[in-house]
């Protein structure tokens, strides 16, 4: 096979994998938008906060230590424990459930019936609050995530680095200049987790009583209220699930770079995915992510290559950030509701 074609395929595969990582963030947006019509701007910060909480609890960090020390002159830092990853995950899930309850009780409850833009603005405020709160609670240092779980066959934590097996078994496709396909093991794990998440969410949504209630609220919250479904309970459930999804996204992205405040910016990568996949479709978030990821990587590969430069007289680099949006906008021209979004028909 021609070398450039192999490289192009490699870029496409890596794009698909990266796109799935974008989808992990986009999923949280979809869940909340589906159930409440709220575009939750705070989803990226939720991923950051969840990951910070997970690492903080695992490392036995004293929450608000800096604040307490400043006010009371103490020297608190750590409790002195290091929790197993599974226990830390469970505790972090608990914190995200508590967070969902608090958001419903102190924010959403007062905004029932308001315009979507009001709810959107409230989530912007929530994002800023949580970012500051997370900083005050856990500090701004970069934290290394430790996901070693011997019981689950991960004694060294989440795998990193290219898969040697794939490299060795694909080398035959090219000549001696081809090293085999590079695929990051972490991305493979991410893709597996995303698949499990999507299947679980779809099964939950379709085959459980709570899932049916969620879908009822998503379809028509007034009708759902009239048959006795508690909107407030549903909102807590959906924000808690979105919090769990945020935790997964935070862990996966945090494993790449350490848990740090730039994690909140992964929202920027989720937006074109949502535009393309639609705001109301769980599979749409995954497919959208894969299209965006593959599109941006293949485009970057083409326009930065020397043969493109020879043909066109110029090359382009660092195109991924803007190209993702251009791609999403192109799709929007033909399907304004996104690939899998529901067509909104309003009678006037």
């Amino acid at each position: 096979m021609p070398l450039q074609l192999l490289y192009g395929i490699e870029a496409a595969i890596n794009g698909l994998m990266t796109g799935v990582m974008y989808s992990l963030v986009a999923l949280g947006f979809v869940l909340i938008f589906k159930a409440s019509g709220v575009f939750n701007y705070a989803q990226g910060v939720m991923a950051l906060f969840a990951a910070l909480t997970l690492v903080g609890l695992q490392n036995g960090q004293v929450p608000f230590a800096h604040l307490i020390n400043t006010v009371f002159g103490t020297h608190l830092d750590r409790f002195g424990w290091h929790l197993p990853a599974l226990l830390a995950i469970l505790l972090a899930i608990g914190v995200m459930i508590l967070f969902a309850i608090l958001v419903e009780r102190y924010l959403l409850k007062y905004l029932v019936g308001q315009d979507p833009i009001i709810l959107f603005m409230a989530t912007i405020g929530l994002a800023y609050f949580m970012e500051g709160f997370g900083d005050l609670m856990w500090g701004s240092d970069i934290k290394v995530i430790d996901m070693s779980m011997p019981l689950l066959g991960l004694p060294d934590g989440l795998p990193q680095g290219g898969s040697l097996w794939i490299e060795e078994h694909t080398q035959f496709l090219g000549d001696e200049r081809f090293y085999g396909f590079f695929i990051d093991k972490l991305d493979i794990v991410g893709a597996g987790i995303a698949a499990i998440l999507v299947i679980s969410l779809m099964v939950f949504s379709r085959y459980t009583k709570t899932g049916t209630a969620l879908r009822a609220v998503a379809d028509d919250n007034q009708a759902a209220l009239s048959v006795g479904i508690s909107l407030r309970t549903i909102w807590v459930i959906v924000w808690a699930i979105a919090g769990f999804v945020a935790l997964v996204a935070g862990v996966m992205w945090g494993a790449k770079s350490g848990v740090q405040f730039s994690l909140s910016l992964i929202t920027l990568k989720a937006l074109p995915v949502l535009m393309l996949g639609g705001f109301t479709s769980i599979p749409g978030a995954i497919i959208g992510g894969m299209i965006i990821g593959m599109g941006e990587k293949v485009f970057e590969f083409i326009v930065s290559s020397s043969w493109f430069g020879d043909a066109m007289g110029f090359t382009l680099n660092a195109t991924e950030n803007w190209f993702a949006y251009v791609l999403a906008l192109l799709f929007l021209v033909f399907r304004p509701q996104g690939l899998f979004g529901e067509k909104i028909i309003e009678r006037v």
């Binding site: 890596n14 794009g15 992205w253």
Partner: peptide, 19 residues
């Protein structure tokens, strides 16, 4: 020259090119 856009959370393209 391999530019990386802010914030640089995703650099797969650049490192595939280096590879």
């Amino acid at each position: 020259l391999l530019p990386v856009d802010h914030p640089g959370q995703e650099q797969k393209s650049q490192w595939l090119q280096i590879r």
